Simulated assay, not measured.
Amino acid sequence: MKPVIIAAALSAAMGATAVQAESPFSTTGYLRIGVGESAGGDLAAMQLNGAWAKYRLGNEDDFYGEFGIGIDAPLGNGSAVIGGLRYHIAGDSNDLTDRGSFDASVALREAWLGYRGLGAGALDEAAIWAGRRYYKRKDIHINDFYYESYSNFDGYGLGVENIALSYGTLSVAGFRERFNRVHTYDARLENIALAENWTGEIGVAFADARGDATGDNGIALRGHVQRDGFFGGYMKASLMYSNGAAFGFSADGAPDVGKDRSLLRAQMHGLVPLDDRTELFFVALHQIDDNDGEQSKWTSLGLRPHYALSDNFAIATEIGYDRVSDDSGDRDLLKGTLAGIYTFGQSGFWDRPQLRAYVTRGSWSDVGAISKQEAYGTNTAGTTVGLQLETWF
């Protein structure tokens, strides 16, 4: 069964279409795959120890694909059956070379079913659902950081979403961690009109530690705002706090985290056009992991300008800086990438597929500051070159 799933995922990611437009079924997919070298050896991504993410352009040493099938089947009363099924395939890019031994993992990521159109008025677009799903994730694209992810990859959940209120839309959900050590209950009010071009969201989650969990119950509080039309683009900002079993803003929780450990996170990111051909993605992030007075602070700043040379060619550069301060001292990583891109006739920042040839240079504060120091010997700087294809639909 697994080879069939893998073949379907790769075929769909490259653009094959097997479902007619009028069908209640739809497909979705993603693929990134490539090869390269770091310091003349195996490809090794540069990520600072203690940082929760890395800047990804020319800095990914894995291959990853997803293939999903969704259903939105209208019923005679104006309601609909909704749901989805999604698998992923993942592995090490070095396994694709003559030096590697191919090995990949295949996993179920989504399997859920729901019913939309629970009634009239506030319930007209409301839906009830159950299963495993990507639930209202929030991410920063250029460092692939999901700063809020109540997607229950290892357990299951159920909820009611999109209840229309006069001041926003309400969604509530509950999730069970795979080993039944944490139950997380989440409520959020989305699409709050704040001012012209400004919308907001507030959320709260309670994590109940149970069974053989060694941690304590916890709570997560989140506030998000979005500004559309921000210098012609958009901007998103957040302020978030969590502790105990709610640490990390995850549906699966943190079963072994005590009430004396907390996480405070603030982030801002967005995409703005600089002219007709140039777009700029920006990131500013800071978080404090406080474990009963012992703190680890992570600061991250990043820029990715994307310049369209023509309909088929573009150039992207990316500069990312990460700094971590904890009881072992301070360490940092500065990473820069230059990529030439073939865009297959669509050259915007979000357009895919993209075939990239890149060179990446990174420097870090001391030996061992990055997670894959062994790839660079005792150096505190290194260069990576490679070729990568990324596409989604």
Rank of each mutant, 00 (worst) to 15 (best):
M1S: 09
M14V: 08
V19C: 06
G29T: 10
L31P: 02
S38T: 11
S38D: 03
D42H: 13
A44W: 00
A45I: 03
L48P: 13
N49S: 07
K54E: 08
R56P: 02
R56I: 06
L57H: 14
E66R: 10
F67R: 10
I69P: 09
I69G: 10
I71S: 10
P74C: 02
N77P: 14
N77M: 13
S79I: 01
A80N: 02
A80Q: 06
R86F: 05
R86V: 06
A90K: 08
G91V: 12
D92E: 09
D92P: 04
D92G: 04
D103K: 15
A104L: 01
A107W: 08
L108D: 13
L108K: 15
L113W: 11
L113C: 09
G121D: 08
L123V: 04
L123Q: 02
A126Q: 10
R133D: 06
Y134D: 14
Y135C: 10
D139M: 03
I142R: 07
D144I: 03
Y147G: 05
E148V: 12
Y150S: 03
Y150H: 04
N152G: 06
G157W: 00
N162W: 06
S166M: 03
V172A: 09
G174H: 07
F179D: 15
H183R: 12
H183P: 00
Y185V: 14
N191G: 11
I192W: 09
A193E: 11
D212I: 12
D216C: 10
D216V: 00
D216R: 01
I219C: 11
H224F: 15
V225P: 12
V225T: 14
R227K: 15
F249D: 07
D252A: 01
G253H: 09
G253A: 02
P255L: 02
D256T: 13
Q267M: 13
M268T: 15
H269N: 14
H269G: 12
E279A: 10
F282I: 08
H286M: 00
K297S: 04
S300G: 12
L303F: 14
R304Q: 13
Y307Q: 08
F313D: 00
A314V: 01
G320V: 08
R323G: 01
S328C: 00
S328E: 11
S328L: 09
S328Q: 07
L334H: 04
L338E: 02
G340N: 04
Y342M: 01
G345V: 08
G345K: 09
G348P: 11
F349P: 00
R356D: 01
R356M: 05
A357T: 11
Y358E: 03
S363A: 08
D366V: 00
A369V: 09
I370A: 09
Q373L: 02
Y376G: 05
T380E: 03
T384H: 06
V385W: 03
L387M: 12
L389M: 13
F393W: 14
